[in-house]
């Protein structure tokens, strides 16, 4: 196992993709890189095949909803892991909520299939090119995306409970 540092990973990414790498931070030693949504697919494909980084294990795909961030409401996180170097990397891309489209990575990882379906199910992200983008955990007739922040866990019209005292 060699020593591949977060700086090396970032430098390689910047060298290869330049303007597509928007920003980066390293919270709790996990390199987190923001990339443009249109390049996310290519970057993940390149990371998988690059001989030095060898980030060929997809750990997780998830989304987060930031309703107040206009034009970048939906954040997609891709966690990839280089099992050879034992280095993890989080790639993220922001999408506008009106058109949450991003290219699927099912052609790179078969395992992305259900993870993308789950993200679609809960956040309404449209993975362009996904072979079978349907709901997975919720019922098919559901007409909204429940993990978005506008859907409260409890009935929002309820008056007998003061939210100041009970959670968010």
């Amino acid at each position: 196992m060699s020593n591949l540092s977060n700086e090396t990973v970032l430098a390689r990414l910047q060298e290869q993709f330049g303007a597509a790498i928007i920003s980066s931070e390293t919270p709790y030693d996990l390199l987190s890189v923001e990339v443009t949504a249109d390049k996310a697919h290519d970057i993940i494909a390149w990371l998988k095949t690059d001989g030095q980084l060898r980030m060929s294990f997809l750990t997780l795909i998830g989304a987060v909803h930031f309703p107040n961030d206009k034009g970048r409401e939906i954040c997609i996180n891709y966690h990839v892991h280089s099992l050879v170097h034992n280095v993890r990397l989080r790639l993220r891309a922001f999408l506008p909520i009106e058109e949450p489209n991003i290219a699927t990575i099912t052609d790179i990882y078969v395992g992305a299939d259900w993870l993308e379906r789950e993200t679609y199910d809960f956040f309404g992200v449209n993975f362009v090119g996904h072979p079978d983008l349907r709901r997975i955990l919720n019922e098919d007739s559901m007409d909204y995306f429940p993990m978005r922040k506008e859907y409260h866990l409890e009935d929002a019209t309820r008056e007998d409970k003061d939210d100041r005292y009970f959670g968010r």
Binding site: T59, L60, G62, V64, H65, N77, H79, V110, G111, D113, W114, L115, E118, G167, R168
Partner: peptide
């Protein structure tokens, strides 16, 4: 795995579980 995002509030802003079963059952 636990992917936890905190905005400083009393509850997580977002918590995602990496559930191994969910991922490998698709095979």
């Amino acid at each position: 795995g636990f992917h936890l995002i905190s905005d400083g509030g009393r509850t997580p802003y977002r918590l995602q579980f990496r559930r191994p079963c969910f991922i490998y059952y698709q095979a």
